[in-house]
Design a protein around this nucleic acid. Sequence first.
DNA 1: CCCCGCTGCTTGATTTTATCAAGGGTATGC
DNA 2: GCATACCCTTGATAAAATCAAGCAGCGGGG
Lengths: 139, 139
Amino acid sequence: MSQELAASLLNQTMWLAGQISGRMQEALDRLDLTGPLANVLWLLQPDADPLSLRAIAGLLHCDPSNVTLLSAKLEQRGLAERRPHPRDGRTRTLVLTEAGEEVRERLLTTVMRHSPLAGLTLEEQEQLHALLAKAIDNA
Amino acid sequence: MSQELAASLLNQTMWLAGQISGRMQEALDRLDLTGPLANVLWLLQPDADPLSLRAIAGLLHCDPSNVTLLSAKLEQRGLAERRPHPRDGRTRTLVLTEAGEEVRERLLTTVMRHSPLAGLTLEEQEQLHALLAKAIDNA
DNA sequence: CCCCGCTGCTTGATTTTATCAAGGGTATGC
DNA sequence: GCATACCCTTGATAAAATCAAGCAGCGGGG
């Protein structure tokens, strides 16, 4: 029973994530982006501390050299820029350019508008948010 | 505000899904599987009606020819089998072999045990389940 | 019955992602 | 200052995804 519930929860979560990235792909086509590139873009919050390439690799669960490639492509399109870390000469951080911020913004709003989560009431969204926050906390 | 909440929810969901597939990768290494192969395995519920290759492509948001490749690899490892559809000669369905079911089972239990969702109380899990079910319903 | 359009899978060529091994440059501790 | 560990990059390679045809199998008009 608890077993089944847990399994069902996993399925729901994965399905939901699938839906979200599905919606994302619609926006992706219009923005001429691929999934992996969008995943990187997704992580680059303009207001947060810039992420090192290694940190991105960790969040993406992939090899650092892969991040090098993806970063280079984003850079080539003028969406992001690799900058040397101010205090550590080894590490580089990836930050969005102005164009990158705009693309990211358009991506997020598109997904938000069409995600299944948008159909919940505000109160339900808050409940959900609280539950997920707790799950994430003790991870 | 509602805007921020929605954005935060998306981030939580995606992060969670990332964690889950991260945990999955640990199991993946031991089972000698790759992410995409595991995604297919994930979809193949033994008790449900068998899925056509096209349906899998739809759920995975990818090209049918890609599913052909992945199915062939699963088949080659003896984890799944492509069977002709009983009523439609065009379509093929992908079903797990006995070995495939066992691997899938091991995959699911491993992920369940380590997913952040496992840290929630039973009651919280039920609440979460209900909320997600509603979100999925009106999708 | 027999075309004809439609659908579903496959193949081949190509591009994109991802991994691994190796290397160069930079920090940190002794 | 040396050893060590860390971070990014490069090159070679494998995996995965896309696209464009192509080959059946289905189903609905003539």
